[in-house]
């Protein structure tokens, strides 16, 4: 697992570069997930988002997710980059790339990665609506750290 497979960046993410990181001769399938800034959420309009991270820990947790994936779906390669700072509509907040010899694992592992990011990676999003601002967190869901976190 190369260290730079998992990054927190303050600049726009270049998707092609993340894809390159997981490209290899054994792979027949590469899936990517891009989380982009959506304008409307439940009838409320977002003007921009602000992401903050506990950077060093976030990189460690992204790497942990990669390791979990490789245990569960052997022969996959994973790269994840999350951007922080101010993002406007349609900008890319996160890119997850997974390569695998066959497609099923690439889809499953990719979806697993985004679910885990939303559970354990110390990154926070502040919504700047047209009528206010809020730090987002799943305070309503009580199981914020399932699957053995913290251990």
């Amino acid at each position: 697992m190369k260290e730079d497979m998992y990054e927190i960046l303050e600049e726009p993410i270049q998707v092609e570069k993340i894809i390159e990181k997981v490209t290899r001769r054994k792979a027949g399938a590469i899936t990517t997930f891009l989380g982009t800034v959506r304008e409307w959420t439940d009838g409320r309009r977002t003007i921009f988002l602000e992401y903050q991270a506990y950077k060093t820990m976030a990189v460690k947790k992204l790497a942990q997710i990669g390791k979990e994936i490789q245990e569960r779906w052997p022969d996959t390669e994973v790269a994840i980059t999350h951007r922080i700072g101010k993002l406007t509509i349609s900008e890319i907040a996160v890119v997850i790339a997974v390569s695998s010899p066959h497609r099923k694992a690439a889809y499953e592992a990719n979806e697993f990665a985004i679910e885990r990011i939303k559970q354990i990676v110390p990154i926070w999003k502040k919504e700047h609506w047209d009528d206010g601002e809020t730090w987002i967190g799943d305070q309503l869901e009580q199981n914020a750290y399932p699957n053995g976190e913290p251990s």
Binding site: G35, Y51, A53, Y54, T56, M57, A58, K60, H82, A93, V94, I114, I117, K118, Q119, I120, V121, P122, I123, W124, K125, W135, I136, G137, D138, Q139, A144, Y145, E149, P150, S151
Partner: peptide
């Protein structure tokens, strides 16, 4: 709470030199 970049339990003890971080519900992605 995280101690030295790993999630910790409320009963865990922290010592001099440790870095303790309070982690509100995360919302990355």
């Amino acid at each position: 709470t995280a101690v030295n970049e790993e999630y910790a339990l409320p009963t865990d003890t922290v010592s001099s030199g440790d870095i303790v971080a309070f982690i509100p519900p995360v919302s990355g992605g």
